[in-house]
Nucleic acid binder design. Structure first.
Length: 255
DNA sequence: ATGGTAGAGGATCTA
């Protein structure tokens, strides 16, 4: 079984790339973030033709998340229970005995900004919810854009980024708190190429210089972690014309 | 410290 996540930065612009990627890679599940469209405009039919069901929660202009899957979804949730939040950042769905969450953690803009404090307020709600999900589902996979580079080795220039948004200690502590629930960063289960990243700024030719950060992650519950046989980043799509600034992360599970 | 690019939507806001 193959699960993947991809921040597409507008599903409208990236739809043909997503369809091509599905056809090529045949994942069982693909989580999307930053779809940047409202539910009425979600391309259900185009995705269905490619052989995938969709669940989604959209929003005008910003945010929006989805899960595409070969199997039909059940028990769909489109918000963190109990959290009043205008921003559409999470969706959860069940496929057989597998629970999948697609998450778009707030970016935070800049340390000290209002968006940064929103991020730091949001993360404990997210953590508490995942704690409950782990109780309810033995096989839980949390995939998405976490907007946190967990360690210095996940940053092309740790000195330059020290203390800055995506790398600051409060954010990294929040990420470690997620792992403390019993979730595993699947990427680090395996030996990986050095300087592996999932996001590169569009500016300053950052991709060509490999000036990236690893901020997209797949976290697995204990039972899934034991079944995980690979975790990879698909850099190739970043070389396409009009690419997203993020690339897919993929896990393979022996289920 | 600043500014560089991309997307949405039609001037800025967000990343």
């Amino acid at each position: 079984m193959k699960l993947a996540t991809w921040n597409v930065n507008s599903l409208k612009v990236r739809l043909s790339q997503v369809i091509d990627w599905l056809m090529e890679n045949q994942p069982d599940v693909l989580c999307l973030q930053e779809i940047k469209l409202i539910n009425e405009n979600f391309p259900v039919n185009e995705i269905k033709v490619a052989g995938y069901e969709s669940v989604f929660i959209g929003q005008k202009t910003y945010n929006g998340v989805a899960i595409l899957s070969k199997q039909a979804a059940s028990k769909v949730i489109t918000a963190i229970p109990g959290l009043a939040d205008e921003q559409k950042r999470v969706i959860a769905a069940t496929y057989g005995d597998l629970r999948v969450i697609s998450a778009y953690v707030p970016n935070g803009e800049q340390v000290g900004s209002e968006k940064y404090s929103y991020k730091l307020r949001w993360l404990p709600h997210f953590t508490q919810w995942l704690q409950q999900e782990l109780i309810d589902y033995k096989k839980l996979a949390v995939l998405g854009d976490f907007n946190i580079a967990p360690e210095d080795r996940d940053v092309y220039d740790p000195k330059l980024w020290e203390g800055r948004v995506l790398c600051s200690e409060p954010e990294r502590t929040a990420f470690r708190n997620l792992l403390s629930l019993g979730l595993t960063d699947s990427f680090r289960l395996f030996e990986q190429p050095e300087k592996s990243y999932t996001w590169w700024d569009y500016r300053m030719m950052a991709f060509r210089r490999n000036q990236g950060l690893r901020i997209d992650h797949i976290l697995l519950s204990g039972e899934l972690s034991s079944a995980c046989v690979a975790c990879t980043v698909d850099k190739a799509v970043r070389k396409l014309e009009r690419p997203s600034d993020h690339v897919p992360v993929i896990v393979e599970l022996s289920l």
